[in-house]
């Protein structure tokens, strides 16, 4: 594990040199949230109205938190870089190093979001308090339970995105599959909480990565419940184990194909 800690630390130090670049990304986040604040302000006719059990403040905060995770854990390394390494043949030089390529990519990704995510969290908090109002019934102590959920959610997302990137061993461009996965997360879990969908669909949606990647952590922040927190953590651990198994399996199969093709 020490070698991955070294990779993590070096990427972290490297990213600290480019903090200004992260600030530039704030513009997109600000605009995106700005649109949603206007949209939800329009959708809620009166201040006390509830939509699928969410007040206006809860709904906007939910979107702000899921988008904070989306922007803060930018997935360029697990999607674009991994796919590019495979397509360009660069992976032939990376896979014979004394580390597992997939874990190397995950360590790099963690080094990136460790800087970005806290910065986006501060931005989200400032925007939320000034433009929406504080979150009702929120207690800072609950963050101790929610932060592990957020970290697990980001890691699960990275593992699944890396699995999709590894498809590049078989097809030239895995980007189209990334788009579909991203849209599934964005529309079903990021923009809306699961409760907004028809009751018949909700059990099915809870089986998808949406529940563990974005809905779970955001739901716990806007409406914390200890039982729900334990349930989400358990599901996240199961998902992470399944996702990692799938990732190692695809990588193992793909690596053999690379050997046949000569890189």
């Amino acid at each position: 594990m020490r070698k991955y800690a070294v990779i993590y630390r070096s990427v972290l130090m490297e990213n600290m040199q480019y903090v200004m670049n992260i600030f530039m990304g704030f513009i997109s986040y600000f605009m995106f949230i700005f649109v949603f604040i206007h949209l939800w302000n329009y959708m809620y006719s009166s201040p006390g109205e509830l939509i699928s059990g969410y007040t206006r403040e809860q709904m906007i905060w939910y979107t702000m938190i899921t988008e904070m995770m989306w922007f803060g854990a930018g997935s360029g390394t697990v999607s674009r870089q991994a796919a590019k390494d495979i397509r360009s043949g660069n992976i032939a030089y990376l896979m014979n190093k004394p580390y597992h390529y997939t874990l190397y990519i995950l360590a790099k990704h963690a080094g990136e979001w460790s800087i970005q995510l806290p910065m986006y969290a501060v931005l989200a908090t400032v925007m939320g308090i000034t433009m929406v109002g504080s979150l009702p019934d929120f207690h800072a102590i609950t963050l101790l339970a929610v932060i592990p959920c957020i970290i697990l959610g980001i890691t699960i997302n990275a593992v699944f995105k890396l699995c999709i990137s590894l498809i590049s061993f078989w097809i030239e461009d895995s980007n189209p599959f990334q788009w579909l996965y991203d849209k599934l997360l964005l529309i079903v879990g990021t923009i809306f909480p699961i409760e907004i969908f028809p009751a018949q669909m909700q059990p099915f949606l809870k089986l998808t990565p949406i529940y563990t990647v974005c809905y779970g952590p955001a739901k716990l922040i806007v409406d914390f419940d200890m039982g729900k927190c334990v349930e989400i953590l358990v599901v996240q651990i199961i998902y992470l184990a399944a996702g990692c198994s799938l990732m190692f399996f695809i990588y193992g199969k793909g690596g053999k194909k690379l050997y046949v093709n000569g890189g």
Partner: peptide, 23 residues
């Protein structure tokens, strides 16, 4: 294959937003 996949999946990607508006 890549050319057609890119085109079809981008159309599907856009179509996913219909769900958002239906809701």
């Amino acid at each position: 294959v890549t050319f057609l996949t890119n085109i079809c999946f981008m159309a599907l990607n856009n179509a996913a937003f219909i769900i958002q508006w239906v809701i």
